[in-house]
């Protein structure tokens, strides 16, 4: 049943991905002047130009060119960066792990803090924790991410000097042997505690900045879902059975409150993919966001399209993952 559902969802993803790829292909066609020259670089020699023209099939009609483009995409060829002359796919492999690590840390903070605070606020409804959280959630949702980043840098790195201001590792720290490209994990697998700590410390400020909005959202949803659940019949029954309040919250109310929370968490991922562009710049993170930003100011369309395609695909799979989580969380949902 589940397998069929996944297959159906994957099948439904095809028209969406096709639409995205048509859009990306169309945009790539908008490059000013000769696309071969654009792809080969302004300084290309005539031989290079010819090689590129042949490789890209630029003498073919447009539909054939689109076919070739899809063929190249399926082989993992996202084109060549106009400014660095490197393959976009290759560069993405360098930049992606940095962003993945940041997103991962942000999601952990969002989920753990968001749910914890939400539950606490619900259980002490009207109390000081609840009120403090309500105030905080306004701050979290209204605060521009880029402004918050600057303030946190100023306070924690500038005045208190307890956290590094930018970068992924201290200079004296040698990057751990590459396994996943995520420094904290690689260091953990290699048993380098000091390196892992260092990478972790560098993650704190950017991840905190990115997660504030998510913590507020997740916290609010968890809070209201918990309150809603606590009014339900099964909770009353559980209470009547003489279970402790804590057991009622955690075993009965929380699992049911997780459903709307999961939706919000899934939505967060999409916003984070965009948010990294803002944050990576401020924290000199050197990930996908920096790469995208540079690409835009260099008018490097293959780079921008590469990032768009990769992040869109990633986002679609995250959505699928969230939907699958639903089945785990709520046995009432059946997929056909």
């Amino acid at each position: 049943m589940m397998g069929r559902y996944v297959a159906r969802r994957l099948f439904l993803m095809i028209p969406v991905l096709l639409g995205v790829s048509i859009l990306a292909f169309y945009v790539s066609q908008l490059l000013p002047g000769d696309p071969a020259r654009a792809a080969a670089g302004r300084l290309a020699t005539p031989e290079q130009l010819e090689a590129v023209r042949e490789r890209l099939g630029l003498d073919q009609p447009i539909p054939v060119q689109y076919g070739l483009y899809i063929g190249r995409l399926l082989q993992g060829d996202l084109g060549t960066s106009l400014s660095s002359k490197q393959e976009v796919a290759q560069e993405l492999r360098i930049f992606f792990p940095a962003t993945l690590e940041l997103l991962f840390a942000t999601m952990v903070l969002t989920v753990v803090l968001g749910i914890t605070i939400g539950v606490r606020a619900a259980t002490s409804r009207g109390g000081w924790v609840d009120r403090a959280f309500l105030g905080f959630s306004y701050l979290g949702v209204g605060m521009p991410v880029f402004f918050l980043a600057l303030l946190l840098q100023l306070v924690f790195a500038g005045w208190l000097r307890v956290l590094p201001i930018a970068g992924r590792l201290s200079l004296e720290t040698v990057p751990p042997p590459v396994l996943t490209g995520l420094y904290t994990f690689d260091a953990l697998f290699a048993g380098q505690w000091a390196t892992m700590m260092d990478a972790g410390r560098h993650l704190v400020l950017p991840a905190l900045t990115l997660s504030i909005a998510g913590i507020s959202e997740v916290g609010r949803i968890t809070r209201s879902a918990m309150l809603n659940a606590l009014e339900q019949d099964y909770v009353r029954t559980a209470r009547a059975k003489g279970l402790s309040e804590r057991a009622v919250w955690l075993r009965h109310a929380l699992p049911n409150a997780m459903l709307p929370t999961t939706t919000v968490i899934g939505l967060q991922v999409a916003f984070l993919l965009g948010g990294t562009v803002l944050i990576e710049n401020i924290f000199s993170w050197g990930g996908l966001g920096t790469y995208a930003w540079k690409g835009i100011f260099r008018l490097d369309i293959p780079v921008i399209m590469g990032i768009t395609l990769v992040s869109t695909t990633a986002y679609l799979f995250v959505n699928l993952g969230v939907d699958l989580l639903y089945t785990k969380l709520d046995p009432r949902i059946r997929y056909e």
Binding site: L17, T308, Y315
Partner: peptide, 10 residues
Amino acid sequence: AFPPLILALA
């Protein structure tokens, strides 16, 4: 399907 800010960038 596009992550919001990314589409705006593109």
